[in-house]
Amino acid sequence: MQARRIARELALLSMSQLSNRPEKLSAQELEDLLLAAVRALTNEVHDILENAAAELKRGSDRLLNSELQATGVQSSRTMVYDAIELTQSAVNRLGMAMELPEFIQLTNRQEVRAYALEILSVIRDNRDRIDETIAASLVNWQLNRLPRIDRDILRVAVAEMFYIGTPDRVAINEAVELAKRYSGDDGHKFVNGVLRRVSDRAKEVSHKG
């Protein structure tokens, strides 16, 4: 795992716990943010598994108790399919959870924490401008209506592109990888589309200037 890739993930997981206080982030605050983020991820896995188990049981019970009417069977099958999808999501999250020990160990590296702190600090200090940049490239969406994880992935990428000097291609590719891990089924396509429009708009402004 590359240091900056781990730092991006650390920053992303920490953002939901990040306050809007103007003080600079400290190493201890980052430690607290990481702990809260890992706990949130663990709780999410637990909740998804519980929901999948409950949905699967409901669908199974309905199949067993139905009188084989077409509508009843179809409804029961839909419930089972939904449960399978929830279970698959939980399995994916469990796969991520298996990597947590290595992830946590790597976050102790100085270069990882330094870059995560830089990303978080940039986002905190420039939140309004970053959000305006993203909002200008959304099509038929409002920023505040996006899933939180997609919004935060976009913020990390824009912070890197506009304030840290990461090449657009690298920032976009890394954001897409984060979306594949943490967003919904089509989240990575959405993130890719928005960030490419952000990049294209920035190039147009640069050329005009």
Rank of each mutant, 00 (worst) to 15 (best):
L35V: 12
V38Q: 02
T87H: 14
L56D: 00
M79T: 10
V73K: 01
A54T: 10
E85W: 08
R77V: 13
S89I: 02
R93H: 05
L100F: 07
G95H: 01
L63Q: 01
L68A: 11
H46G: 03
R62D: 10
S75D: 10
A54Q: 11
A37E: 00
D61R: 14
M98P: 05
R39W: 03
V80W: 02
R109A: 13
E99P: 02
I48C: 03
D47P: 01
S75C: 06
E67Y: 03
N51R: 07
A90K: 04
Y81Q: 15
E50G: 13
N43W: 07
L41R: 12
Q105R: 12
R77G: 09
N108S: 08
S60W: 01
A97Q: 15
A114M: 13
M96G: 10
N92E: 14
I104P: 00
N51D: 08
A54M: 09
N43M: 11
G72W: 00
A70Q: 02
V45I: 14
N51E: 08
A83E: 06
E111D: 15
Y81K: 15
E50S: 14
V112W: 02
N51I: 00
L63H: 00
E55I: 09
N43E: 13
S66R: 06
A83G: 15
A36E: 09
A40R: 14
L35Y: 11
R77A: 08
A36D: 07
Q88S: 14
V45M: 06
L86R: 08
A90N: 02
A40S: 12
E67G: 01
G72Y: 00
L86H: 05
A70I: 08
S75A: 10
L49V: 08
N65L: 10
T107C: 15
A52S: 07
P101V: 01
R113A: 10
T78A: 13
D47K: 09
E67F: 03
S75K: 06
F103S: 04
L63C: 00
Q88H: 13
T42V: 15
T87L: 15
A36L: 09
M96T: 11
T42R: 14
L100W: 00
T42H: 12
E50D: 12
V91H: 03
L41W: 04
V45Q: 09
A36T: 02
E85C: 10
R58Y: 04
V73P: 00
I104N: 00
G72H: 04
E99V: 07
D61S: 14
L68M: 11
Y81H: 14
I48D: 01
A54C: 03
L106I: 07
A54F: 08
M79F: 07
R77E: 09
E50T: 14
Q88M: 14
S76A: 15
L94Q: 07
R62H: 11
A53W: 04
A83M: 05
V91I: 15
V80D: 03
L94I: 12
E111M: 08
T42W: 09
T107E: 06
L63S: 04
R77N: 11
L56N: 02
L41D: 03
V80L: 15
